[in-house]
């Protein structure tokens, strides 16, 4: 029934008097690419450049908001704390909306965020400086929740880290009434019917002399220190038991063999196959749709990992 209610969407500009950072199609225009009402504003903005990826993201968003393996109430509480930590007003607004739908009032949400539950500081650290989480902090939570739930909690907070950055970069402000989870999937026929807009050619990457615009000091890890940090990461003990190979029985032999080589994939697929599968589906759709230079993107990946001090 909720989808039959007329909901007016307001796409607020990033700041008063300024136009939106990206063209914001009307709901009707956006539905030409994504056929189902109503869409959240971030999906409308993404759909103008990455319509198929927007569809996969809507499915991923649905999983985290409406059918989380963690239970929706816990997922919403974690999202609220993570979004609050990074200053994502939209993220907090949808967390409040989803918490209410799961039976958690706003006052209870705020009380939990001030409680002694060790998940609260864990969620904040995951949002702000995940590298600063200690083994003892993780062990304390692992003893309470077990590996399957802890891997789910990490993925839920990783999704918040992803989604909040996208919202903040797109300049998306909270709506008067958040859009509920979409509650639908898109079939192969739909994907085949959609054309991704053509991209401008990438700028020439030849080194034209330009003053350096680096705005940081990373010299603490130059020289031998960087290889030392990577060597230390190779020796680190995993914080959860490696899931048994049988946990990947749902995969084809080739996919399983590839997954077993990559610890990130093995742990994630072994304990949280739904969250991981939905994430990989969005990631793979983006790769197929954007077709962006891999040296360029992985250079950005290196900068992001260095900024986060993630040596994995």
């Amino acid at each position: 029934m909720r989808f039959l209610l007329p909901i007016i969407l307001f796409a607020l500009p990033a700041s008063a008097g300024e136009p939106p950072r990206f063209p914001m199609p009307s709901n009707a225009e956006a539905w030409k690419a994504l056929p189902n009402p109503p869409l959240p504003p971030w999906a409308r903005a993404v759909s103008a450049s990455l319509p198929k990826t927007a569809a996969k993201l809507l499915e991923l968003d649905d999983l985290h908001r409406a059918s989380s393996p963690l239970r929706n109430a816990l997922a919403a509480k974690l999202r609220w704390v993570a979004s609050d930590a990074v200053g994502s007003r939209y993220g907090k607004a949808i967390a409040e909306f989803d918490a209410k739908a799961a039976g958690v009032a706003k006052a209870d949400l705020e009380a939990w965020a001030k409680s002694n539950d060790p998940l609260v500081p864990f969620a904040r650290k995951m949002a702000l400086a995940a590298d600063s989480i200690t083994d003892s902090e993780f062990k304390k939570l692992l003893d309470i929740h077990g590996p399957e739930t802890m891997v789910g909690i990490v993925h839920a907070l990783a999704y918040a880290g992803f989604h909040d950055r996208m919202l903040l970069a797109l300049g998306i402000e909270p709506e008067k009434e958040p859009v509920p989870p979409l509650g639908r999937t898109f079939d192969a026929k739909w994907y085949e019917s959609i054309t991704t807009p053509a991209r401008d050619p990438m700028p020439a990457r030849t080194a034209v002399p330009a003053p350096s615009t680096a705005t940081f000091d990373w010299k603490d890890l130059t020289g031998k220190k960087m290889p030392e940090e990577l060597a230390t990461q190779r020796k680190r003990p995993l914080r959860v038991p490696l899931p048994p190979e049988e946990s990947l029985a749902f995969m084809t032999e080739a996919s399983r063999a590839r997954t077993l080589k990559i610890v990130w994939s093995h742990v994630s697929q072994g304990y949280q196959p739904k969250m991981t599968g939905a994430w990989f589906a969005a990631m793979n759709q983006f790769q197929a749709e954007a077709k962006i230079d891999q040296v360029f993107t992985n250079t950005l990946f290196w900068i992001a990992t260095r900024t986060n001090r993630c040596f994995y």
């Binding site: 190779r234 914080r239 992001a304």
Partner: peptide, 22 residues
């Protein structure tokens, strides 16, 4: 924007679980 946000999902899993580098 999408890709940089993606990077921040990946690193949070790597850091949160402190995955040993292959």
């Amino acid at each position: 924007i999408w890709y940089v946000s993606w990077c921040n999902y990946m690193t949070r899993v790597g850091d949160g679980l402190q995955l040993p580098l292959e």
